[in-house]
Structure formats: C-alpha cells, structure tokens
Write a protein that binds this DNA or RNA. Sequence first.
DNA 1: AACTAAACATACTAACCAGTATGTTTGCAT
DNA 2: ATGCAAACATACTGGTTAGTATGTTTAGTT
Lengths: 206, 206
Amino acid sequence: MFALHTRQYLLMTKAETTRLGILQKAFGLIYRNGYQATSIDDILVDSPVTKGAFFYHFKNKEEMGLAMIQEIMYPGMYDVMIKPLAGSANPVQEIHLMMTNLFLKVPFFEVKYGCPAVNLIDEMAPLNAAFHKALGKLITEWQQAMETSLGNGKAAGIVRADVDPKQVSCFIAAGYSGIRNMGKLLGTPCYTSYLHELKNYLTRLQ
Amino acid sequence: MFALHTRQYLLMTKAETTRLGILQKAFGLIYRNGYQATSIDDILVDSPVTKGAFFYHFKNKEEMGLAMIQEIMYPGMYDVMIKPLAGSANPVQEIHLMMTNLFLKVPFFEVKYGCPAVNLIDEMAPLNAAFHKALGKLITEWQQAMETSLGNGKAAGIVRADVDPKQVSCFIAAGYSGIRNMGKLLGTPCYTSYLHELKNYLTRLQ
DNA sequence: AACTAAACATACTAACCAGTATGTTTGCAT
DNA sequence: ATGCAAACATACTGGTTAGTATGTTTAGTT
C-alpha cells in the first residue's frame, strides 16, 4: 500500500523525484504526529531537500498537504479499500476480506497510530474547507463502493431484501473508523474482536 | 452535560473558581481546535485570568490537559454514557436510548467538531503516555458498562445466549467513535442513518 | 559555447509558543 | 493592625514556526 502510482523512479525527472520524496516523507510524519504538529523543518530534517526546494514545489504547507492526500493517500487507499470490492460475487464475503486485509496485511499501518485518513479527518475536516473536501471524496467513494457491492448482493439474492445498502455501508465505515481510533488505546486485540463481530453482523445480512 | 460536578460556584473559593474557569475555557477551545493547536495564550484571551494565574494553578500545559480530562470530561461523559446503563432492565433498549440522547440531546456537541473524547484519543493517545492512560480509563469504563448491561440481558433471557458481551460492546463503541469522525464530513444525516442501523443490529441480538 | 529558465540552496524575519523571573495584591489567622 | 502565605499580575526569554529574499547551480535548447 501507498506504493508509487506515478511513473517509476527511473522514468521520473529529478524534480518529480524530489517532489514525491517530500510528499512521502510528509506522509510518514503526519501519519504519526498529525498535520499541524509536523513542521516543514521536520519534513526536511535528514533529507537532501532544502527549504528552497520545498517552496519551489509547493506554494505553502496547505498546498503540500492537499497534494499528499490526492497523490499519496488516495491512490493507496483505492488499491486496498475500493478496488477489491469491484465486481465482487459475494459482497458479505468481500467486505469482510477487504477489512481483514486492511487491518492485518497492510505493513505500513501501526495500531498505535491508527489510519492516516481517519486521523486527518479528525484533525483537519473541521478546520479547513479544502481538506474537508479532499477527505470527503476519500470516504464517500469507499462508502459508494460498499453500497454498490451490497446492492449487487441484493440483486443476486445473496443479501436480504430489507437491507438498506446506504445505511449499512455507513454503519460499516463508522465501525472501521472507530476501531482505528480505539486501537490507539487498546491495541491489536480489539482489531480481532472487531473483525469477529463484523463477521457476525455481515452474516445476519444474508 | 459537562456541567459542574464540583461544588457550586457560590460555595467555591475564588481560587477554585479561577481554576475551573481555566479548565472550562480550555475544554471549549481544545474541543474545537485540538490540544496541540490550542495555545495557553488562546485560553487566556478574553478572560480575566492571566498567565501568572495559569501557571500558579498548573505546573504546565500537560498537567492542565490531564486535569481537564479528569475534572471536566470524565464527569460529563459519566452522566450521559455510563449512568443511564446502570440497573437497566433491557440493555438493547437502554443502549439505543443512551446513543440517541448522546447524538441528539447533548447541546454542547456540534457535528462539525465530533466528540471531545474521540478527538483527544485520536490526537494524543499515540503521543503521550499520561493522556493515553487517562483516556483509556474513559472508554474502558464505558465498554465495561455496556458489557455488564449485555451480560445482565443474557442472564434475564432478553439477549441471545451466543452473544459475546465484550465483543459486542467493543463493536458498538467503535461504531460510536467512528460515526463521530464521519459526522465531521457528512453532517447530521449520517447520525440518524447510523442510529437506524444500530437499532437493527441491536434487535438482532435479542 | 552561450543563453535561459527550471530547480534548487542559504540566510533571514516576524509572529508565536511554553515557560520563567519577579513583582504585587488579596484573604485570613493572630 | 500586622504578618504572611496564597493567589495572582507583568514583563521577559529562548526556541520554534511558516514563509521570504536573494543568491547559485543545473539541464536543456540553440
């Protein structure tokens, strides 16, 4: 996850490499410490990039943050959270599999630090309209993907007719976001506990 | 919610009033802007309290933050989240009622800014051990209360025998925490949507 | 080789921050 | 009323912050 989605390093110009390097370093720090608590100087420490280069590539810190969401976070989350749901035969199974992978198979994520997207929503959505919009796109598309998947399940007769896909996808997304938060306090055990109960919940939709 | 739980103003010494005033002002600002983004100067702006008074009552910013959790947040949450669950006849009903009140009847909370406890967990749990501990107490006790309530429900035959109270209370707490996060992006509609699906989920536990 | 714009590098600034040093006022016991 | 500690008030400090001003290097074109 959060691998390169632009062209490979070898095919990139030097300028593109520095820009991407800034975004990746920023992403790592912001994930652990938060956006506001991460200074530009922090991003440049132990890095060949200087402040001049930073402000050549980005007008200000906010513009860098938005680029980070769109160019690092969005592609990364798309691969693990949205792509696996496309064209699924059994939504109940696929959603649970996607979640299991998300919690246990993404090496970058650390329980202690939760989910980068959830963190950024919590911190920045109320404070900055541009961040609000960019982050809204992330979770809306995820919810859409689950909603469509559940709709397909209903059409195929796998999912019960009285299930409201929009409502259920919202409920599931909330569970994910929340357990990422609680994991910061309770550690991995609550992940597995959550996944078990999610399984129960999903099964009862069939 | 978040009313006084110490003795009334009239019975308080001037010093106690100042101290409490600082904590309440800090709570309001930290709720909206975050702990790290709220400076001590911010807390003292438009206030009769000066910096000298602040550092007379608190050793440093961290100590004030911890006092805020214990003296403002904990009592406030106890009243709305834990007390209503004690000695409940029907846990399924009581939990849903508690949540409904929590989302729609607490005037202090604003959708845009989520839940103060969830916010603080997200920001501070990974960064500060003392905050981690104080906040852990909050949600652990809440989970405990729900767990006990569900256990009683099982004993009374209202809740199904195959329900795992600990697992379910974790699942429910995660849902709450998560929808507070999502509400920052999607507004009140997702609150009602969540409450409906929570009702469905809880009903299936009977 | 010469020119030029892109891509940096260095040094600085004004504002802000938590915390301190040092002073003054207030309330209360005697 | 006087003494004295509690409860402040004011002025400062050293470090950090986003951003700027200004200079230098690099790479591609002609």
